[in-house]
């Protein structure tokens, strides 16, 4: 059993390849579909994006190292498909200026706005749809990092690979995204009368 995996895989019959593809990748469809939906905010687009992801995954199956992180690999393909094919046609708000984001966290000052007065009680009174609305209101790059970290539970290292950014950028983007999310949640709690 000490044979090189790479060699074994190249000799796979189509049936064996299909069986492995099915076993390793299909159980992840639930997470992928939800990720696609949270990115596109459209059921049909999410559907297309997931299909495309699986087709690409099949095409590049040989470059996937079995037993490694299948979920991170598929998420990366999906994210790249989204950027290349979907984002162009979607009506996203103007792109985020990362220069500004990065310099924001290179400063040593504690930003006063970090201590939003969002109350935990208000947060806990909110229903899922309201929380989702606040999340959906974020620019897609900020939304993405929160989905990956908080909904899907990826590590910083995995997120760095999925997003093709350094870990330091993962951290600063996540930090910024959470502050923005708290502002959205607070605004929402305010209009709903939760924050009284």
């Amino acid at each position: 059993m000490e044979e090189n995996r790479e060699n074994i895989r190249k000799d796979l019959s189509k049936a064996e390849k299909d069986a492995q593809f099915e076993k390793e990748f299909m159980p992840l469809i639930d997470s992928l579909y939800n990720f696609a939906y949270r990115l596109t905010l459209d059921e049909d687009d999410a559907n297309d994006l997931v299909q495309e992801t699986y087709l690409k995954a099949y095409r590049f199956f040989n470059s996937y190292e079995q037993g490694t992180n299948a979920k991170a690999w598929l998420f990366r393909i999906l994210k790249n498909s989204f950027i290349n094919d979907f984002r162009k046609k979607s009506k996203e708000p103007s792109k985020v200026d990362y220069q500004e984001v990065e310099s924001y966290y290179n400063s040593d000052d504690v930003d006063e706005s970090i201590t939003t007065d969002l109350r935990i009680e208000s947060l806990q009174e909110m229903i899922g749809d309201e929380v989702a609305t606040a999340l959906n209101a974020l620019a897609v790059d900020f939304r993405t990092i929160i989905i990956l970290c908080d909904l899907e539970g990826f590590t910083y290292e995995e997120m760095a690979k999925i997003l093709d950014i350094p870990i330091g950028t993962v951290r600063s983007r996540l930090h910024r995204a959470r502050n923005l999310l708290k502002e959205k949640l607070k605004a929402y709690a305010g209009t709903m009368g939760y924050n009284k």
């Binding site: 939906y37 806990q124 909110m126 229903i127 899922g128 929380v131 989702a132 708290k182």
Partner: peptide
């Protein structure tokens, strides 16, 4: 607060069923 925001995201946002 941040810990709660994380927990609320995870527990309250509903999963979409796969078509």
């Amino acid at each position: 607060l941040d810990k709660n925001v994380k927990e609320v995201l995870k527990s309250k946002i509903e999963k979409k069923p796969v078509p």
